[in-house]
Design a protein around this nucleic acid. Structure first.
Lengths: 145, 145
DNA sequence: CAGATTTCAGTGGAACTGACATTT
DNA sequence: CAAATGTCAGTTCCACTGAAATCT
């Protein structure tokens, strides 16, 4: 059982969530951080596209962006090419907040990966990335890709 | 973001859960399978000890064992050394069911790990095991260890 | 008495679903 | 018309919490 990958990843994910949400405290939620990072990384874009890039449910994006906008970290503008979409962009306050959050996220991650060497950490990231990329094409949990 | 281990493991765990619960269908629940496998592996033992070994919440063990017992896959006997405990053991029907479930679980896992070579799969298991072992000593989500 | 085991009821988060109005 | 976007409401699963009864 403790050799089954599915059981192992479940527990590592649990540990990871505990550490991250603990270090973020009440300030920010796990998904909020991911979305904010996504806005910064992928530039101004529609929230449907953003959700697909991040693997976040499109229905949940509404609440996440509402929170981030209320805190002044992102702005929702109108896309004049396509009036269905709104164009999400990061603000200066958002960039500042993101830098701080990235710090605490990396600290939590360091705690998670403490027993691994640098090479092992890179190995792990590489393996996980391979799996994610592969399944994003074959396992659509609706609305992804 | 897609370099952050915490984000990656969350998605791999999601993919894994989808695959496993899909292949199990409505017959068996993810945790039920783990507990059944644990009973077979760790022999007759109390349900508190079993829950700790598997990292399953002790409160949840009640419902899981109730289901498994109702299906005749495990038996709850009395421990005569300590009358607080009940001694959980696997039945013949349980062993048979387990073998079948292991097959489908391994098939689902094979689907999950499809893009990885055999060596990479072992690497991944090794890395995850290291993380789990480490955090089970330092991150008690109550009642664990 | 403190501490462990089993049981039950309830909480909260997170992912997902279905429906709707709007626009392309 | 079919398809995509954004919004909202509701569901389901899972891990966890708190309290109680029983026993060492």
């Amino acid at each position: 059982l403790w050799c089954l990958t599915s059981w192992l990843v479940g527990h590592v994910d649990g540990d990871s969530r505990r550490l991250v949400t603990l270090s973020f405290g009440n300030s920010t939620d796990r998904t909020d951080f991911a979305v904010l990072a996504g806005v910064e990384q992928y530039g101004p874009l529609s929230q449907a596209l953003l959700g697909r890039r991040l693997g976040v449910n499109l229905g949940d994006m509404v609440a996440v962006l509402k929170r981030l906008e209320a805190r002044g970290l992102v702005v929702r503008g109108d896309d004049e090419q396509d009036r269905r979409r709104n164009s999400i962009g990061i603000t200066e306050a958002g960039k500042k907040a993101l830098i701080s959050l990235e710090g605490t996220a990396l600290a939590a991650q360091d705690e998670l990966l403490k027993p691994l060497s640098q090479e092992e950490r890179q190995q792990l990231v590489g393996l996980l990335q391979t799996l994610v990329k592969h399944h994003r094409n074959y396992l659509p949990p609706k609305d992804v890709r």
